[in-house]
Design a protein around this nucleic acid. Structure first.
Length: 425
RNA sequence: GCCGCCGUAGUAUAGCCCGGCCUAGUAUGCGGGCCUGUCGAGCCCGUGACCCGGGUUCAAAUCCCGGCGGCGGCGCCA
C-alpha cells in the first residue's frame, strides 16, 4: 500500500452500503463535511475487511483507518484505501427513517427522529448554518465592544402580565421561566454600556402555527448612551447583514445543498413609519383599528407589497404607545414611541427600541399600563443611580433562519422542538 | 379557548367522496437470488399496514358517534 501516505482515522456512521460480488462500497458520514467518506473494500485486495464490510449494517457506528485512495471513481465523496475498521455499535433494528433522503418523512416523523436524520449531511446543513449564525453574531458583537452576559432564566412574577409565563416551583416561592432577558439587560445598562446575550425564550402561549415555538432562541442586545433608537437600529441592521455575509462566505456549500440562494442585504434597511404602514394597508383593504398592533395577516400583506417594491427587509418605526410594552420611551407627542419592528419577507424577526431610562417616567408608564410598580421594584431600583439613555433589541434565531433559508415551518429550524404538545424527544 | 383538515406496513403514499370488484395497490426499507465499481444502480422472489372503542349494514379501510394523535387557521403572542 501507499506507505508514505499519512494514515487517517475517521469515525462516523454507515449511511449507505452497496455490495457487488467482489467489492463492497460503504459510505460513512460523521464529521462536518457535506460529502460522505467512501470506503472501497475489495475481496482480492483486503479479504478480511471485505468480509467484515459485507456484513456491516447501515447505521453502524464505526471508525476506519486508511489513506485517501489513488483511485477516485465515486461521484459522491472521497474514496479511501482502508487498513482497519473498528465497529463500535450496530443497529438493533433497521433505521426507522431514511437517512440518505430517498424516502421523504412527514414533519412529525422528522422531529421524532431528527437525531438520526442529522446523519444525512444535507439534513445537517440547516443546523450547521444555525451554528454559523450564532458564531457570526458573537464575532459581530465582540468586534464592536459588546460583552456577552447571562441573565437568569428562572424569574419572579410580574414581568408583565403573567398569563404567558410558564410557572415553576422554586422552593417556597412562585417563579416563572424567563420570557425575555429584557428587564435584566436593561438593568445592566447601569454599569456595562454594551451587552448581548444568546438565550432561550419561554412562552406559554397555546399556539399551533408555522412560526411559533414555546421554547425559542433569541439574540438580544442592549446599548447605552444612545441618541435615540436609530443607534440601536444601526446595530441590528449591521448585525443581520454581517450574519448573512458570514453565512454566504463560510457556509456556501451548505447553502448549495439546500438549494438556497441567499442574497446579501444592503444597509441601511428601509424604514416605514407605523402611520404610513396603516395607510398602505388601508389602501389594500386591510383596516387596522386605531392604535392597534399589526396582525399576522397584515404583516404578511405588507411583506408582499414591500418585496414587490424591492425591499425584502424593512423596519417599522414609531409604534403607538398603546401597542407597546411599558418600558419603551414615549415621543414628545405622547402618542408614538421609540419602538420598532424588523420584518423580513413579511415576518417579524426582531423588535426593539429606545427604552425609558428616567425613573419617574418609568413609574408613570407602569401605572399607565395598569401594572403595579411594587412588582417591578428590583428593576426600578436600577434606574435610580445614573441610568444612561439606552435601547436594544431581541432577534428571533429560528425566524431569521426561516427567512434566510426559506423554511416553511419554524419547527425545521430547531433540532429538538418544544411546541404546544411536544415535550419529547 | 374557538374552527378546519388529516390518521393505511419501518418510512412515504394509492384506495375513502360513491360500502361488496381489497385476499388492501405502489415506492422505499428489510430478508433472499441474479448481476457485479454502484452514483437515488438494475431485474426477480419474499416480508410487512387500514389509530382505538362503539354503532349502522347481509357486507365497513370506506358511512355515523366518541376518544386519542398529527397538521394548520383564528384568538393570543410586551
Amino acid at each position: 500500500m501507499c506507505q508514505w501516505c499519512v494514515v487517517l482515522r475517521i469515525c462516523g456512521w454507515i449511511i449507505r452500503k452497496k455490495v457487488f460480488g467482489r467489492i463492497v462500497i460503504i459510505e460513512v458520514s460523521g464529521d462536518t463535511s457535506i460529502k460522505p467518506h467512501v470506503l472501497v473494500l475489495k475481496r482480492d485486495r483486503e479479504p478480511e475487511l471485505f468480509k467484515l464490510g459485507k456484513e456491516l449494517d447501515v447505521g453502524s457506528a464505526i471508525c476506519f483507518e486508511g489513506d485517501v485512495s489513488p483511485i477516485q471513481k465515486s461521484k459522491r465523496g472521497v474514496e479511501y484505501l482502508v487498513r482497519r475498521i473498528d465497529v463500535y455499535s450496530t443497529p438493533l433494528d433497521p433505521l426507522p427513517v431514511d437517512t440518505i433522503g430517498k424516502v421523504p418523512a412527514l414533519l412529525d416523523t422528522r422531529i421524532k427522529y431528527r437525531y438520526l436524520l442529522l446523519r444525512n449531511p444535507v439534513e445537517k446543513a440547516v443546523f450547521r448554518i444555525r451554528a454559523g449564525i450564532i458564531e457570526a453574531a458573537r464575532r459581530f458583537f465582540i468586534e464592536r465592544g459588546f460583552m456577552e452576559v447571562h441573565t437568569p432564566k428562572i424569574v419572579a412574577a410580574g414581568a408583565e402580565g403573567g398569563a404567558t409565563l410558564f410557572p415553576v416551583k422554586y422552593f417556597e416561592y412562585n417563579a416563572y421561566l424567563s420570557q425575555s432577558p429584557q428587564l435584566y439587560k436593561q438593568m445592566l445598562m447601569a454599569s456595562i454600556p454594551r451587552v448581548f446575550e444568546i438565550t432561550p425564550y419561554f412562552r406559554a402561549e397555546k399556539f399551533n402555527t408555522t412560526r411559533h415555538l414555546n421554547e425559542s432562541w433569541g439574540i438580544d442586545a442592549e446599548q447605552g448612551f444612545i441618541r435615540d433608537e436609530e443607534d440601536v437600529m444601526k446595530t441590528l441592521e449591521e448585525l443581520i447583514s454581517y450574519i448573512v455575509d458570514y453565512i454566504r462566505r463560510s457556509y456556501a456549500e451548505d447553502l448549495e445543498v439546500l438549494g438556497v440562494e441567499l442574497k446579501p442585504l444592503t444597509t441601511p434597511f428601509k424604514r416605514l413609519r407605523y402611520d404610513e404602514v396603516i395607510d398602505m394597508l388601508s389602501s389594500e383593504g386591510i383596516e387596522i383599528p386605531e392604535g392597534e398592533d399589526l396582525t399576522d395577516a397584515a404583516e404578511k400583506k405588507l411583506g408582499e407589497i414591500m418585496v414587490e417594491k424591492g425591499y425584502e427587509i424593512y423596519y417599522i418605526v414609531g409604534f403607538p404607545w398603546k401597542t407597546t410594552g411599558f418600558y419603551y420611551m414615549r415621543k414628545e407627542d405622547g402618542i408614538h414611541t421609540g419602538k420598532f419592528d424588523l420584518d423580513y419577507k413579511g415576518l417579524e424577526i426582531a423588535s426593539g427600541g429606545q427604552r425609558e431610562h428616567r425613573y419617574d417616567k418609568l413609574v408613570e408608564a407602569l401605572k399607565d399600563k395598569g401594572l403595579n410598580p411594587e412588582n417591578f421594584k428590583f428593576y426600578l431600583e436600577a434606574f435610580k443611580y445614573g441610568m444612561p439613555p439606552h435601547g436594544g433589541f431581541g432577534l428571533g434565531v429560528e425566524r431569521l433562519m426561516m427567512k434566510m433559508l426559506g423554511l416553511q415551518n419554524i419547527r425545521e429550524a430547531i433540532i429538538f422542538v418544544r411546541d404546544r404538545t411536544r415535550l419529547t424527544p
